[in-house]
Design a protein around this nucleic acid. Structure first.
Lengths: 195, 195, 195, 195
DNA sequence: AATGAATGAGTCTTCATTCAT
DNA sequence: TATGAATGAAGACTCATTCAT
């Protein structure tokens, strides 16, 4: 047997660290916390990851790519742009929003390790092109310039994420359900697209 | 008499720290960084602030209260709800958005020292009641339930802040101007309020 | 397996710290002194003890309990109260008195970490009951009220300890032997008990 | 007027510092504590004393010499050695014992600044010669060799002081009155001197 | 691969003392 | 003489990472 790397251990580290980073922040979480919580030893952690940075990095990249690929798969199954948009709002957003831990880390102080812009860019491009194909003859949509539309997508996307993050940490009295409603109403009222 | 407490020094510490916290984060910034950047000595920093926490606290509270009181003053001057909303969007948002450093700190990992929920709550209440007074006979506004409207305000407010924050740190290609445009279009299209 | 917790290292830290605390006091001794004197690194010190306080605590408790358990063992072996008292004076006191460092720490400013009252109380109770069993028909002993006897025990016990402490630090010209003699004479002359 | 040094201020500093040093220890008391408690400023403190050490030094030396000179004055007034001894026990000890703060400082970790040996030496010499003049024909006293007698004096003197100190800080259940009783009984029973 | 003691640069903070005013 | 802001060495302690076993 060539390698004895235990994929389950790797996953366990990632899972535990994700929770800790989300709850206590990147700087607030010590490797020793991960050690305690996983029941492993420092040495073991370091045979799977070469640094603390690499752990966040893995959490974010793997978490995100899983999310994103699911989105692509789902969108591929839908045919019309309307269906796609509906899917985006009714399936994807609730899913993203459920992963508060990932969101918290993405928006946390560790932004440096997070390459958040990249991810935003990609999502934005996707939604942007989706929206564009709905634009023909849609008065309100035509009211948005390309740049304004792009910006709107970013603002709303980041708004959703931030809201979820803050709502988790404090008593904002806003549920994930409320957030999805908002996106729907916004789509209906400002794009005149009824979902 | 000995030298007197120098208000300029206090301000300098605040200003320098604000920049550093915004750029490198609260935990990423060491007191020694502030020392180096201000050219003062540790001791001096600690004669003006009793801890690192107190520094962020002062930055956030003083920055925010200045912003907020200006908003209240301006709103007081306007008469109709429409005027107030216009002011909010055309004067207040650009101003908030200009203070990227403050925003970055508000959204940073130091959320604990930041009491962000409080601030959100207050802004939300204000905008909410403003919007409510525009609601009568406005179909789209009536489409929002109270809770959805509140959520929308939070999402958009946090969306604006997050966008500005991320845009500063990376190459998102979004300007403050774009952000204001978005809010305007959103208001026009989804509230049918023309500004 | 990685290196194992090395009991010798723990002992070395304790031994070195004991000397330093005794000579320079608890507050006069810096962790860096312990580091220098043991030849270890700060980190190592802190893998064996979680704080400076814990070090004094260990020195005091371990030193004292060893002393005290030896006393109990010895006293258990003796039968008559006279034998017990003899043992106390001729074996225990010389032993206590030998551990000047421990005494210095016990009496030092770190009294807080030292729980000296507890230890005094316990010794006093023991000696008190011992003396009481010699009291019957012993005129001088009957001259002491309970409270005076208790006080006398405390005064003499603390007197011995303080004398040893001061004698070590300065040129008092008093040896441990002298101290034992005093206790004997005091016992003989004031309790009329010949040892 | 040549000097404007205000003797009252000096005394106030000394008095306040004495209390603080006694309660919180030498190292536990910061100059800033003295500043706060006296209501003076650092600068003022330092125009009266050139260092923290000098403050303890003054407290100890002035406190002690006042005590000692009173003792000498009193002893001078008495004629017979018996009277002198009685005075020592009934007047001096209660007085010393009353000044717990001074005692605490004398015995504290600041022993270095305290020159305690000197003071012990002097008291011991005095008591020793006093006792010697009572020795003729006094069997028990003759039982003490010179060195044992000297040691006994030291042990009892330090015992008294330590007991008072510890009793103040913790719940030893011993009063100053008890301590004086002990000395009396000890004198009576072991020196056969009835006071 | 797994272990966990060892490392030491780096953290925040304190505080006796100085000295310009 | 009085003031109190300024100083900076020194303090206790942390923690990511290494490496001998």
């Amino acid at each position: 047997m060539a390698r004895n790397r235990d994929e389950n251990k790797r996953k366990a580290i990632l899972q535990t660290s994700k929770l800790l980073f989300a709850q206590k922040g990147f700087f607030g979480t010590a490797i020793s916390d991960i050690v305690r919580e996983t029941g492993m030893t420092v040495g073991t952690i370091y045979t799977y990851f070469s640094s603390k940075d690499e752990i966040v990095h893995a959490i974010v990249e793997e978490g995100w790519s899983e999310l994103y690929s699911r989105l692509e798969r789902d969108l591929g199954a839908a045919v019309s742009p309307e269906d796609k948009l509906r899917l985006l709002i009714e399936r994807f957003i609730p899913e993203v929003v459920k992963d508060v831990d990932l969101i918290s880390i993405l928006l946390s102080e560790a932004v440096t390790y997070t390459r958040l812009e990249e991810k935003i860019e990609r999502i934005t491009d996707l939604v942007f092109s989706l929206t564009r194909s709905l634009a023909a003859g849609n008065r309100p949509l035509e009211a948005f310039t390309r740049q304004t539309l792009r910006t709107a997508i970013v603002v709303i996307f980041l708004g959703i994420m931030s809201t979820v993050r803050i709502a988790r940490a404090s008593s904002l009295g806003i549920s994930n359900r409320d957030i999805v409603s908002v996106v729907k109403v916004l789509a209906r009222e400002s794009l005149r697209i009824d979902l």
